[in-house]
Design a protein around this nucleic acid. Structure first.
Lengths: 331, 331
DNA sequence: ACTCCGTTTGCACCCGGTAGCAAACCCGAT
DNA sequence: ATCGGGTTTGCTACCGGGTGCAAACGGAGT
């Protein structure tokens, strides 16, 4: 098994110098059509194509973007990853998917991203704590970082997210108009700024309607099981009369878990006995089996914005975009 | 904004040559503890870490594995990607997620994978046609390829998959024992070997039970909508008396779509009026709202096997593994 | 035939590491 | 003090390209 052909070999075959070969593969380089054809033909027979690794080393750009994901339980990640990879690839950038977990934490991943010279790092998950990222030895030359679909208070790391304040305002208005008066909120994990943001706005908009207490349920993680567990605990320890009448969940996957438990284990009708609202508008939430009222983030625009920032077509800065309430039968 | 520190700079700071610096970062290299400490200290203050790009160029291994995905509608992809990235990272390998679509097709992706010198390429999707891959100019030095969770007849490209024959045999046995006698099959797209394989085995096991005709429904794509659409077409053009009594769908996501339509648009009870079976055992299929009978592929073992082959701990060859029938209320 | 000027081409050096060899070193034995 | 052996260290060459400059080329104008 021979190795790949190199520019030097093509040069010999075409009877030119290796720099001429490189020019033939460099758009806009100064080269006559005659020698370009000679080179391309030799390249064709030798099956040559430039080694992007070597190019990356020389040009100091890898055309690779790292995406840190720490939450694979949420199906919402998949369509967003699809859009992200598609848009990045359209710009000639490849996506390196990095699984952040207890074996491979942020520090590992950041050092690795540094060593591999990624063009950018996108944080796309739930648990990026300010300390961890501040503590990073982001020496000079560390790739620019962005936070996707989440708020961020990390200095120098712009967040591209849905406008949480607007979203919760629309949701609370909608719920209030429907006559709900005893709101509950299920958060996925503590100390996350997203959760804090959504919860905070939810509570304050209810307060603005004159309703003070928002009952809080806490799920351990972001998964259907965790949502089911949290709902089970709440419903089994709270008498029917004193329960919330609408439960807003921090995302759809929690909401589906909660809804399943409410209906199948406690015989509750949704929305009559308990209304449920989610966030993200995942495909299955819209299925007739659930009819989950949710809120859709403008994923396409968010992805476009982040890609534009990475490619330098747009200034890197925090962006919040309006989403869209998707009312269905569950509330 | 300065650039990253290099070995040469650290060498000057520590008063040694750059090769000594490199040895300090090479496990098992011949270096005295004294100079290693000097180097590590200088590296610390300069915030140096080796440039993996340069290392890759020199060693001819990138420690990056490309994963081609063409089907982001199936939520089953997400947990498998999670396992895959985790196991690969445990071996020091990063995952490059490549979205195969009409803008960035297999040929593009393969050329790119070649130029980037990935250590391996994993085909993880539905529509990898033999022609496309045979047509590849996989010159010498092209990364080894593997097919994950699908059959493959591509020569030289080992498939790591669930044993379809065994799976369908278990499923048909189960359905026959439950008393179903008019089987239907919904395939996601034509000309896919997986579909052909599953459909083929399904039909032949029914035949072995003395039941000849399997009604076939064809969905356009692999998505809940496509499954819903196919089911809608079938149910609205077939009188209740002559319908199938059990519908096996090529994967869970189609099954959920079909089930939704059957229940909400045609008022059918599942499984009384129509039983439904899926494949993949996605999390939401197990929710009480569906209770979908499904078949679980041994994803963890499949991923382990493929990673072992990539790292050379195991011979690269076709592997089929037994899965597990997951009976629930839908059949 | 001879400038002149713009285009092509070749070259030395660089990107930041790795491999393998040879010189330098160190320490105990003679 | 000298020698011998293994250990450290430095060096040349190399991975496969990219950059900027200088030399070579080629055609128009005279």
């Amino acid at each position: 098994m021979r190795k790949r052909a190199t520019a030097k070999e093509v040069a010999e075959a075409a009877g030119v110098s290796k720099w001429t070969v490189i020019r033939a593969f460099t758009p806009g380089a100064s080269i006559t059509e005659a020698s370009r054809q000679k080179v391309l033909q030799a390249a064709e027979t030798l099956n040559y194509s430039p080694n992007l690794l070597a190019r990356s080393l020389a040009t100091n750009t890898t055309h690779q973007v790292a995406v840190f994901v720490d939450d694979f339980a949420n199906p919402h990640k998949l369509p967003v990853l699809e859009m992200l990879t598609e848009r990045l690839q359209a710009e000639g950038l490849l996506t390196v998917l990095i699984n952040i977990n207890r074996h491979f934490d942020h520090v590992h991943a950041l050092i690795n991203a540094d060593q591999r010279q990624f063009d950018a790092v996108i944080l796309f998950g739930t648990a990026f704590r300010e300390e961890t990222l501040g503590d990073r030895r982001l020496g000079p030359g560390f790739p620019p970082m962005f936070v996707l679909a989440r708020d961020s208070q990390i200095p120098g790391v712009p967040a591209i997210a849905c406008n949480a304040e607007l979203a919760l305002s629309e949701i609370v208005d909608y719920l209030f108009d429907k006559g709900y008066r005893r709101p509950g909120f299920m958060a996925g994990a503590r100390t996350l700024s997203t959760a804090l943001g959504r919860r905070h706005h939810y509570a304050s908009f209810w307060r603005a309607k004159g309703i003070e207490g928002v009952t809080e349920l806490a799920a351990e993680r972001y998964s259907a099981q965790a949502g089911a567990e949290a709902a089970r605990t709440y419903l089994s320890t709270t008498a029917p009369g004193s329960r919330v009448d609408v439960l807003m969940c921090e995302n759809d996957i929690l909401a589906l878990g909660a809804m399943d438990v409410a209906r199948s284990e406690f015989g509750l009708e949704v929305p009559q006995d308990l209304a449920v609202v989610g966030f993200d508008n995942i495909e299955l939430g819209g299925a007739p089996a659930y009819g989950l009222t949710s809120y859709e983030q403008p994923a396409g625009e968010m992805v476009d914005a982040i890609v534009a920032m990475i490619t330098g077509k747009r200034d890197a800065e925090m962006v919040v975009m309006p989403g869209r309430l998707v009312p269905r039968s569950s509330a």
